[in-house]
């Protein structure tokens, strides 16, 4: 199946008294690298949770081609999820499993590959992320940056056609950040996946992204190519680009 076109219409979500999403609308370019930027606490992770069906919106629609998420049967939702990979902001690694078992888990769980093949694939991915020989390590022994890379490998192993990355390079040193960015770019290029990255890294955003959307105060205030974003007159956008995050 080709990577789907994803569209969000007027998504609203309130937690208690806090209005987090006040009407978020934007399109995700299919088979391209899309970025969401915005200060922390603006609701970027919340958007990803809605896109993956982990959270239910108060109102609004999320379309995957001609499937609307809130109307999807649980079977359809499951099928859709098999086409997705999500890197959680904090990794969400299974701490009862070793590093390698974590990475190979999706393949093993869905019976997509023999134990030997999934083991090899997991090791290859780990190696590409500078974690050769970590297969048998315990998750508890990992540093923040290592957790992130293991989680990244787990998101990639099924070679999904929709990839969501929640701050893939936050907490990594510059060299590792660069490697992870390269990996995301090359994974997208070879698979033609639709990629959505949540990021604080302005430099990476401007070089990697085909499209950048910025969230501010519960709404998308800009959604354009990086070049057009730089020319955007909105002061919030300019403040963010100038690095005045928080």
């Amino acid at each position: 199946m080709p990577a789907p076109a994803i569209e969000i219409h007027d998504l609203k979500k309130r937690y208690g008294v806090q209005d987090v999403l006040k009407g978020v609308s934007f399109k995700i370019l299919p088979e391209r690298i899309n970025f969401i930027i915005g200060r922390s606490g603006e609701g970027k992770t919340v958007i990803l949770k809605h896109l993956t069906g982990l959270e239910k919106a108060d109102s609004g629609e999320i379309w995957y081609d001609d499937l609307e998420l809130s109307q999807a049967s649980s079977k359809k939702l499951r099928e859709l999820r098999l086409r997705m990979g999500l890197l959680f902001q904090d990794g969400a690694l299974f701490d009862s499993l070793s590093v390698g078992e974590n990475v190979a888990f999706p393949l093993w769980f869905h019976g997509r590959a023999s134990a030997k093949v999934s083991h090899r694939k997991a090791e290859e991915l780990l190696e590409g992320l500078g974690m050769a020989g970590s297969f048998v390590r315990q998750v508890a022994s990992l540093s923040t940056g290592e957790r992130k890379r293991v989680a990244l490998a787990r998101a990639l192993i099924m070679e999904p056609e929709i990839l969501f990355f929640d701050e893939p390079t936050t907490g990594l040193d510059p060299l590792l950040s660069y490697q992870v960015d390269e990996l995301i770019a090359s994974a997208q290029k070879t698979s033609g996946a639709t990629v959505l990255v949540v990021s604080h890294d302005i430099a990476a955003t401007l070089t990697l992204a085909h499209q950048v959307s910025m969230i501010h105060d519960g709404r998308i205030v800009a959604s354009s190519s990086p070049a057009a974003l730089k020319a955007n007159p909105n002061p919030e956008v300019q403040k963010f680009l100038a690095g005045e995050t928080d």
């Binding site: 982990l54 959680f88 969400a92 690694l93 299974f94 701490d95 769980f109």
Partner: peptide, 20 residues
């Protein structure tokens, strides 16, 4: 304790997203 630790560290969400 085990399931709630899995819940608060999003491991249960991770399973769900993987279609498990």
């Amino acid at each position: 304790a085990e399931l709630s630790a899995m819940k608060v560290t999003e491991q249960i969400d991770a399973l769900t997203v993987m279609g498990a």
